[in-house]
Amino acid sequence: MEDLQKFIRELRKRAKREDKRNLISVWSEKDRFQGKIVDSFVIILRTKGCRWAYHSGCSMCGYFNDTNPRMKEEDLINQINEAFEKYRNEDVVKVFTSGSFLDDWEVPPKIQNALYDKFSSAKRIIVESRPEYVTMEKAKELAERGNIMVALGLESANNETLIRRINKGFKVEDYVRAAEILKIFNIPIKTYILLKPPFMSERQAIEEAIYSVKFASQYSEIVSVNPMNIQNYTLVEYLWRRGEYRAPWLWSVVEVLKRTANLDVDVVSFPTAGGKNRGAHNCGKCDERVLKAIEKFSLTQNLAALENLNCQCKERWKKIVDYEDYLWDYSINN
């Protein structure tokens, strides 16, 4: 683990960050909310960044590239106002910070409240946080707002993966503790599961994602499967450049969704950089079609969307799933 952290830190040193103070991004997209397809409003705040990233950070996370350690409260207020100007009363508001919205160091409580106030008309505000910032006090405040959902990035329900593949900085038990606090206050939970952390075969990745989705479904209203996308100055990018890592096949995403469709909760996936080399992809010919099917399923939860999907490359994917383990090498998966 020490070695892993050292490696991650070294790679990050090469990143060049600029003194930007504005919003990273904001847009509108479709999402699923309480059984219906709705419009949702995505806000990505530029903050000081994730506290864990200051220590070492996760092997796949490049969000630190967009953060600014000199961020001030007034900058954050400006960003919230900037976002609100573009808000068109979407039902769902999703807030990302490249870290934890609930971390009072990263986003001062004043700012947290300012955002809740500004978007109080939304049916739901989803804020993302690492589990260590979910406390009884924090949960009590959130519960009083009534429209807040907390998104937790569990990534994997396997501690070995959290510690030795991702360097997540917390364990499954920490997630459970946070989830149980939120449950006490009836705050709904969305959980992110990472499909294909590094140092895993395609098969291992599929099996572990399925296991993790099932595990998270006990605590969540929605489980979102996030296939790996390759971000700058990360360990995963380093491996990818050397041909030792390939983002998961879209067939693997389909496989995970199919095999978790029987769960009572919504299991969705919106692959970042889908179809691209840096995101989940297939052979290039079928990517668009398969991505559409995945999106359709994610919005409707109707398995029919994933049936009768085929392409020549599916055969190669199947062989890789069945035999890559035996190679003890990840460079053949391409």
Partner: peptide, 11 residues
């Protein structure tokens, strides 16, 4: 002894 990563090393 199993020697892993032969294909990577062959590069």
């Amino acid at each position: 002894y199993l020697i892993p990563y032969i294909n990577t090393r062959l590069k």
